[in-house]
Nucleic acid binder design. Structure first.
Lengths: 157, 157
DNA sequence: CTCTTTGCAAACTGTTTGCAATGCC
DNA sequence: GGCATTGCAAACAGTTTGCAAAGAG
């Protein structure tokens, strides 16, 4: 699921129509390195296509998810749904300050399913999330040391 | 953070008042082995205290979280906030069918922070979540094989 | 030409907030 | 008695749904 054209072809072959809106959304998905929310995608697509509606973003993302062409994760900070263009196994780095999520390759040891600590669960996938602060937010926190609102927002989960 | 009395003492020493409502909420938290949502806690507390309000549940849970006495995680299935009476390092088993979350002990190898794949992030904690189907839901799925709605709900993330 | 998609508005869910009445210490 | 807490109602954020108009194939 790399290029826009591949997404378009795949989407079309599964019986869906290609519209300018969907083309623009696919483009943004391909370009994104973070895990955008619907609102994020909307902001970016709007730049070139001001009349697109947020509903169309939601609808399209949901269809992509249902086709298994993207994944979705929940942000812990704001509870919003984030979309992930990758559906293969990989881990996440989550910034507790700006809520940005980026991918990291799974360290080699990460795939082992826990033996019979699995409590009878049938496990189908695992996800490791590392929580911390991204470089930009670390810098910001250093620069603003002592300013109360910043402190509060940083240390509030 | 084991017994109700410990929670009460801790909460009180930090300058908060103890009310019957809070006592009842703490009780439920102590007893829970899953990770209840505010609504779950409300249902359980209501059984013995019918006049308690959902607002009080939310307020109390938020305070506990701010005091670091409980943790919170987001459910991927319904997007709701789930509360975790444990704040130490451990992993989660998540049922994709009923959205129940239970704890598992962290397998020994799990604590290593990824070397310099960490992209400049300052990592403060990690969380491993194993997604799958709990014993009860597996049984349910077997019993109802062939029934469409069940199939749909099972396989829709 | 038909059936899908769009985009508005309204509904909905989970959560938070404002505020008067109540209750803890 | 003073200040924190409760619980109602209303506000909110993120997401979904109903539906008429527009558009893809």
């Amino acid at each position: 699921m790399r290029t826009v054209e591949e997404i378009i072809t795949n989407f079309q072959q599964r019986g869906h129509k290609i519209t300018p809106q969907r083309r623009a959304i696919f483009q943004i998905i391909c370009e994104s390195n973070t895990h955008p929310s619907a609102e994020d995608v909307y902001q970016q697509v709007s730049a070139n296509m001001p009349d697109i509606s947020l509903t169309t973003i939601y609808n399209t993302m949901r269809e992509l998810k249902e086709l298994g062409m993207i994944d979705a994760v929940n942000a812990v900070g704001d509870g919003s749904l984030r979309y992930d263009k990758r559906t293969d196994h990989h881990d996440h780095l989550y910034c507790l300050h700006c809520n940005q999520i980026i991918d990291i390759e799974t360290p080699s040891g990460s795939l082992e399913i826990p033996k019979e600590k699995s409590m009878g669960y049938k496990i189908v996938k695992q996800q490791v999330t590392y929580y911390g602060y991204c470089p930009a937010c670390q810098k910001n926190m250093r620069d603003k040391t002592g300013r109360e609102e910043t402190q509060a927002s940083v240390f509030n989960e």
